[in-house]
Design a protein around this nucleic acid. Structure first.
Ligand SMILES: [Mn+2]
Ligand SMILES: [Mn+2]
Ligand SMILES: [Zn+2]
Ligand SMILES: [Zn+2]
Lengths: 121, 121
DNA sequence: AAAATAAATAGTAATAATTACTATTTATTT
DNA sequence: AAATAAATAGTAATTATTACTATTTATTTT
C-alpha cells in the first residue's frame, strides 16, 4: 500500500483518541489538517486500514465506529452519552466487577458470537 | 394503540419466522397480504411494536433486524450465510459447549455491555 | 533528474436504509 | 350517523456509505 498523507492523518486521528470515532468525526478533524480531503477518501482509507488490520470497525447501532485498539477486547456502552469504553474479558466476571472496576452500572449485556453454522460442514 | 390490519400482519410475520427479518423482508411479505401497504408504515409500526415491547431491534452490522423472541437471549451469527441463531446465556459456558450444542464453530465473540457510565453519577 | 507507471485523490453521483411530511382513510367513540 | 383522532399511502428528505472518473501524486525506471 503506497503512502499517502491523507491516510496517515486518518490513522493518527484514530490512534490518538479513545472515543471510537465515526467516519464523519474523522472527516471533520482531518479537514483541519488537509482542508481539501474528501469524505470518499476517508471511507476508502478506513476500509484499507481495516484490511491491513491497523484498525477495526465496530458497528454501534446503525453507524460504524473505528477503533485502533487491536487487542481483543469488548466495550461498555453508556446509554446516556453513548460513549464506548474498552474492557478486557478477564475483567468481566460479572456486573458487580464492572461496577467496581469501571463505576459503570450495567443494564444490559448483548453478545454476538460469530462463526460458521452447521449448514456449511 | 388503535388496531390496524397492517400492524397485525407485520407482527404476525415477525412472530412466525426465526430469521430475524429486516424491514425490507417484512415489507415484501406484507405486500402479499396487503398489496398497498407502504414501507413507511412498516417502519412506523416496527417502532411502535418495539415501544410496546412486542418486538426487539437487533443491529446486525449496519442493518436493523427484528426479533419477536422477547426472552433475554443472545445470538450466534454465521459468517457465511449471515443467519442469526438464538442461544441462551446458560448454554454458553465456552466455545466448546457451543460447538457441541449447536454444531457451530466459533470464530469471534463480541459483547457490548450497556448501562450508565460514571459521568452520570 | 526526467519520464513512466500505477495507486490515490477530489469531487460528485449513486445507492441503501431510515425518517419526515401531508392529504386521505379508517377505527373507535359519541 | 356524525365526530374525532389515530393510522395510512405515497412521496420527499436525510443519513451513511459506495461507486465513478478525471486529475494528481508517490514510487520506480531510465
Ligand atoms: Mn475499543
Ligand atoms: Mn433472537
Ligand atoms: Zn455516559
Ligand atoms: Zn451459515
Amino acid at each position: 500500500m503506497r503512502y499517502s498523507q491523507q491516510r496517515e492523518v486518518i490513522l493518527n486521528l484514530i490512534q490518538n483518541t479513545k472515543i471510537h470515532p465515526t467516519a464523519d468525526w474523522i472527516y471533520s478533524k482531518a479537514k483541519t489538517h488537509i482542508p481539501k480531503i474528501s469524505l470518499g477518501t476517508v471511507y476508502r482509507n478506513l476500509k484499507k486500514l481495516e484490511q491491513d488490520k491497523l484498525i477495526a470497525t465496530i458497528y454501534d447501532g446503525n453507524v460504524a465506529r473505528y477503533d485502533s485498539n487491536m487487542e481483543k477486547h469488548d466495550h461498555l456502552k453508556c446509554n446516556i452519552c453513548g460513549d464506548l469504553i474498552d474492557i478486557n474479558k478477564n475483567n468481566i466476571d460479572i456486573s458487580k466487577t464492572i461496577l467496581r472496576n469501571f463505576n459503570f452500572k450495567v443494564s444490559d449485556i448483548e453478545m454476538t458470537i460469530s462463526g460458521t453454522c452447521k449448514k456449511h460442514t
